[in-house]
Design a protein around this nucleic acid. Structure first.
Lengths: 219, 219, 219, 219
DNA sequence: AATGAATGAGAGTTCATTCAT
DNA sequence: CATGAATGAACTCTCATTCAT
């Protein structure tokens, strides 16, 4: 490895070090409580270095969203491109993947949670990374919508407003995970989150799958 | 009405005016984004007046929690003291009441949401109002627990850790409402929140009600 | 006593109550630390009432100086008008009286201490009471000067700049009392303040009394 | 001198510039009258810069006490370590050194004056510098006490409570200097402060030195 | 005469961001 | 590239004083 390469790598490492420090801090305390100084101190760099790698406080928050989204998108892409899999199964798999993501990358959860209340500034400011994140989140939902469209086309699902249902589907998962995120006491009575999600989805999907006459769901 | 009485009322009105301004602002933008100046400007009072009525920023936030909780507690009390009502029905009624509360007093939702992420300061500072709010929230859950205990005693429910189940029950409702709160698109496919809550509770209660042999729940 | 008289008296009492509260507070904590609210609360009156009796914060401080000075001036006047008393004895008596004043009215000491560092505002603002206090303090020194002049005239003292010596004489006493005021440990080795003052004055007076050739300063 | 060194020096200079501005202002007007803005304006720096160098208003005041104490302690240390000098002479020298200190560093006098009334906050807050100042003041008195102990051991002084006498000794000097500090008119009649201190100490020391029967106190 | 609610300038302090070195 | 000193607007909060009742 050349010196030049090592230097470039070293830079990337520094950038990541800052991001990691910010990730942990934002996750624990939230956007407003964390100051730049706390991040630089934890990362072991100077203020100037911070601003060398990130334009401002909002930018690093967006970068975290970006990083977190990348991991999630990757996992969901894999599910969607599964061959010989029913659309309903894919949706269920997507839910399971999201749940796994929550379990394995808890640090990102609060930060990416797309629909969650984001700092005001985040919404107003439109920087480069900001647009990337928005686009990525949008494309994530578009990917899910494609499953719904696929399902309609192959006769699994009834006709529907796919975009609205996509959003609702995501919101449902998000809400249920949040439920556990806030009070991890669900399994007290033998119901664990994964099960709850499954059942909640069943209820929801009841509305979108094409019913064979024999099927009956009593309330 | 005497002059004196009119004055006292006027004072109360001004206090409320400040609280209302704060309520709307906190609701829309969150604790950290809102400055005292924004509240006083909206309320049409001076900085000094604000601090005449509220000790500090945290205190007014707590006051909003208090006010919001009072409305909710009142409604739930009424349900609990219903005569000739099964414990299960009471729990379902409590859920419906909470949903109604969310619908009618949306301004308070983010602020009181007991399990939601509260500003760090709120947790640390222990003022008078702070203790009142904590006690009130606790007693709210205790009231719900009493329904569970009642249900166990009259043979409706199986034996269980009532306190943990109480928390779970509340978390479930809170999570589901939040789900709608974030993206109000649930009814797109004909499932409205009230229905969803009902069904979610059915799933949950399946774990705690005593089953007669004839009852069957197919999944 | 008529109702009117009783009312007037009541007013005086209220005025005094405020002054007493202020006296104790200023004495313990100093001018800047004490707020109007502390005074009114201690006195059991409203803010408005305070400003009814005293123009502002400075004014009540000056009033305390005035009251304190009155007591002191009275005592010193009595000494000065003593018949058949040498000027030197008078000066020594004045010192003793000042020492007694310090002992009996310690609350006033910090406040009146004429030469002590007074709040800046006090020096700059020129109100009615302000002028009275200044005049009174000045006349107190003038009274002392008169003893010196008397002493020169009757041959007890050498010729001198009486005004400067007066100031020095007062400063000496003030400084010595302050010495004790700050660390009341003088008597540790058997020297009590009264003695120290006496001796210090002896040293000082050695410079102003006319020495007979035979005189020798012993002890 | 390297660029780096020049920079470090520049930083120290700026820190000192702020301290000097504060010194003069505090000295002239007192702790409460001086605002941060006055200091920064005089020093020609911004508010932020002030807080870059000093944690808060109390801290810079303590820093001044620290700086002032350092100068004084240095001088007194030199006296104490004088070889072949009687303990009584050392005490007298300490007094002279303190008087010189007062003369040469008048700016510090009000600020360090250990026994003087310090702002309430200063007493209550326990910061790092706060502890340093307290320790330094205490060790200053301990140094003086060591002279007394030495004097007792070598038979110069009678047995006594050395700690109490130390405090009294310091208070005596402090009081006498304060006397002059307030009204610099002592020398009006040919008695200057240095002389007065000497004489006052003679009186005091008369109580602690071992008297040979032949000794007679004259002057 | 008495009240205390209302005022608002100004206090001390923080912190995201810039820029000379 | 990296530093961290410097900035200053903005923040929360205080308090002497006023004035309608």
């Amino acid at each position: 490895m050349s010196i030049r390469a090592r230097t470039i790598e070293a830079k990337q490492q520094k950038r990541q070090k800052i991001l990691d420090a910010a990730k942990e801090l934002f996750f624990n305390k939230g956007y407003y409580v964390i100051g730049i100084d706390m991040i630089t101190e934890k990362a072991g760099v100077s203020t100037g270095t911070f601003y060398h790698y990130y334009k401002n406080k909002i930018e690093i928050y967006k970068s975290l969203q970006n990083e977190g989204l990348d991991i999630l998108v990757d996992s969901i892409m894999k599910v969607i491109s599964l061959p010989r899999t029913s659309s309903l199964t894919k949706l269920k798999e997507i839910a399971r993947v999201y749940f796994r993501y929550y379990n394995d990358h808890r640090e990102y959860f609060d930060i990416i949670s797309i629909l969650s209340a984001t700092p005001d500034e985040l919404k107003e400011t439109q920087t480069e990374i900001s647009r990337i994140v928005d686009r990525k989140a949008h494309s994530l939902l578009k990917m899910i919508e494609s499953v719904l469209i696929e399902g309609i086309e192959n006769g699994e699902f009834v006709s529907m407003n796919t975009w609205k249902v996509t959003n609702m589907f995501w919101g449902l998962m998000d809400g249920l995970i949040l439920l556990e995120h806030r009070n991890n006491t669900l399994n007290v009575i033998g119901v664990d989150l994964e099960d709850l999600i499954k059942q909640a989805l069943e209820i929801t999907f009841f509305g979108i799958v094409k019913h064979k006459p024999s099927e009956n769901r009593k309330k």
